[in-house]
Design a protein around this nucleic acid. Structure first.
Length: 423
DNA sequence: TCTGGGGTCCTAGGACCC
DNA sequence: TCTGGGGTCCTAGGACCC
C-alpha cells in the first residue's frame, strides 16, 4: 500500500501555526518579489483569488476583504516540512520526500484497518506540528494522489481516503476529472478531451493498444498506474541532484552591469553552499539574463551562456569567477534586466571525482578547508550573512520587494514567539 | 509601477564513431 | 543507374510536477 501525505495549503498553514488568529481567515502567501499568489487558504480561494494571480492585480481586493498577506518565508516552511516528514517517518520507515509539502509512504505489510491508520497519521502530524495534512492510500502513486484529493475535498473522510478495492478505484476515477490526474497537464488536456475523454475512468478503461497509439511512454505509465499496476519508482533515498539553480526577478529593471554582477555573484554563492550541503561538485555552470517578458514596448533580450569548469569544483570563489565570465558574455548594454540566474550542471559526487593531473593539491585542500570553515560559521540563520566574498551581495537588499515578511519563528532565537502572561 | 522559483524526464535531431 | 547500417552521446525544446 502506498500513502500520499499532502499538507493542506502548506505555506498558509505554516504561517497559521505561529499566528493561530489567522485560522478561518483569508490568507495569501506571495512569491519572490511579492509577485504572485502561490498559496491561498480555503477562505481566500472562496473569495475568488487564485494561485498565480499577480499581486498588484488583486492587492486592492485582498485588502478590501481583510485578507492577510505574507511574503514567502521559505526557511520557515523548510523547517516545518522537516518536522512533518519526521512524524511521517515515525509511522513508516520507507518514505519518499516528494516535495516540500508531500511525502509518499510505502507500507510493505498489512497494517490492519487502513482508514484507521490513515486518520491516526493525520491526527499525529497535526498534534506534533500544527500542520493539517490529507492522506491518500492506494496501491499505486497515481491512485494515492487521487485518494488524497478526496481526503482533502470531503471532510467526511476525516483526513484519510483509501482505495483498496477495484470497486472503490472505479468509483473514485469516475468522479475524477481527467485534467486532475497526476501527469495530465495543460498542454495534453485538450488532446485527451478531443478523444472524448472527460473522466479518469474513461482513460483507465481504454485498451492498451489504443493508449500506445495515443501517448508516449509517460502516458502509458500513467494508464497502468490508474489500473492498479505500480510502475513509478520509489525514491526512498533521494537521488543525486543533476542541476541546482538560483534565480530571482528584480523589483526594478537593472541597466547597470555592476549591479547585475553583484546579484549574479550572490546567486552563485547560494548555489555553491547548497552543492556543498549535498556533497556535489559542478562540471559546468550557466548564467542567464532576461528583460521583462511582460513589457510589450521596449526591446526584449534573453541570453544564457554556459561555462565549462576546468576541474569540477564546489569552491565559491572559483564558481563566482566562472559565473562572472559567463555573465560578461551574456550581457548586452542598453537593456533593462528584470531577471537573472545561475545554474550549476554536470553535477557529480564530490568524493567520486578524480582531480586534474595538473591541479595544485595543496591549494585544493586549503580552499576546501576554507569553504568548510565558512559553511560552519554561516550555518545558523542568524549568521547567514556574517562572512562572504567581497564581490557578493548576499542580502539582495533593495533588489527584491518583501513587504510582508513573517519571522523565523522556528529557526532563529531572536524570532521566537513571545508570550505575555497577564497578571 | 507591479506578473515566481526550482526541478525531472522524454524525444528528436545532429555530431560523431566504426 | 547505383551512394549502408548501426551505434552512442549531447543538446534543445517540450511537457510535466511542486
Amino acid at each position: 500500500m502506498i500513502g500520499l501525505a499532502d499538507c493542506d495549503n502548506f505555506f498558509v498553514s505554516c504561517e497559521r501555526v505561529f499566528r493561530p488568529a489567522l485560522c478561518g481567515r483569508p490568507v495569501i502567501v506571495l512569491s519572490n518579489n511579492d509577485g504572485c499568489a502561490v498559496a491561498l487558504s480555503n477562505e481566500a480561494k472562496a473569495l475568488g483569488f487564485r494561485r498565480g494571480d499577480p499581486y498588484f492585480k488583486i492587492k486592492e481586493q485582498a485588502e478590501a476583504n481583510g485578507a492577510f498577506v505574507f511574503s514567502g518565508n521559505h526557511r520557515l516552511y523548510e523547517d516545518m516540512s522537516g518536522r512533518v516528514m519526521m512524524t511521517l517517518r515515525s509511522f513508516c520507515e520507507e518514505i519518499e520526500i516528494y516535495s516540500v509539502d508531500e511525502g509518499f509512504m510505502f507500507f510493505n505489510d498489512a497494517m490492519g484497518d487502513w482508514a484507521d491508520l490513515g486518520r491516526e497519521i493525520v491526527r499525529t502530524v497535526r498534534r506534533n506540528t500544527g500542520i493539517p495534512v490529507s492522506l491518500g492510500l492506494a496501491p499505486t502513486k497515481t491512485l494515492a494522489k487521487v485518494a488524497a484529493r478526496f481526503a482533502k475535498k470531503y471532510p467526511a473522510y476525516r483526513g484519510a481516503c483509501v482505495i483498496d478495492s477495484d470497486e472503490k478505484r472505479r468509483k473514485a476515477l469516475s468522479l475524477t476529472a481527467i485534467g486532475d490526474v497526476w501527469g495530465v497537464g495543460r498542454r495534453n488536456l485538450p488532446k485527451l478531451q478531443r478523444q472524448g475523454l472527460t473522466t479518469a475512468l474513461q482513460l483507465a478503461d481504454l485498451a492498451e493498444d489504443r493508449v500506445k497509439d495515443l501517448f508516449n511512454i509517460v502516458g502509458l505509465r500513467m494508464w497502468r498506474e490508474l489500473n492498479g499496476e505500480s510502475c513509478i519508482s520509489r525514491e526512498i533515498v533521494p537521488p543525486q541532484r543533476k542541476t541546482i539553480t538560483c534565480s530571482r526577478s528584480f523589483q526594478a529593471d537593472i541597466f547597470n552591469f555592476e549591479e547585475l554582477r553583484k546579484a549574479v555573484a550572490g546567486f552563485t554563492a547560494i548555489v555553491a553552499r547548497r552543492m556543498r550541503e549535498q556533497h556535489l561538485v559542478a562540471g559546468a555552470l550557466e548564467v542567464f539574463v532576461a528583460t521583462n517578458r511582460f513589457h510589450t514596448s521596449g526591446p526584449q533580450y534573453f541570453n544564457s551562456v554556459a561555462q565549462r569548469l576546468a576541474d569540477p569544483t564546489d569552491d565559491t570563489a572559483e564558481l563566482v569567477q566562472a559565473a562572472l565570465k559567463a555573465l560578461q558574455a551574456a550581457f548586452r548594454p542598453g537593456y533593462g534586466y528584470k531577471k537573472a540566474g545561475v545554474t550549476i550542471t554536470h553535477c557529480m559526487d564530490a568524493n567520486a571525482v578524480t582531480g586534474s593531473l595538473f591541479a595544485d593539491r595543496d591549494d585544493r585542500d586549503r580552499r576546501r578547508r576554507l569553504m568548510a570553515a565558512v559553511d560552519k560559521i554561516t550555518a545558523s540563520p542568524a549568521n547567514r550573512n556574517a562572512l562572504h566574498l567581497a564581490s557578493v551581495d548576499c542580502t539582495f537588499s533593495g533588489l527584491t520587494r518583501r513587504e510582508h515578511e513573517s519571522r523565523l519563528f522556528s529557526t532563529n532565537l531572536n524570532d521566537i514567539i513571545e508570550i505575555n502572561l497577564r497578571k
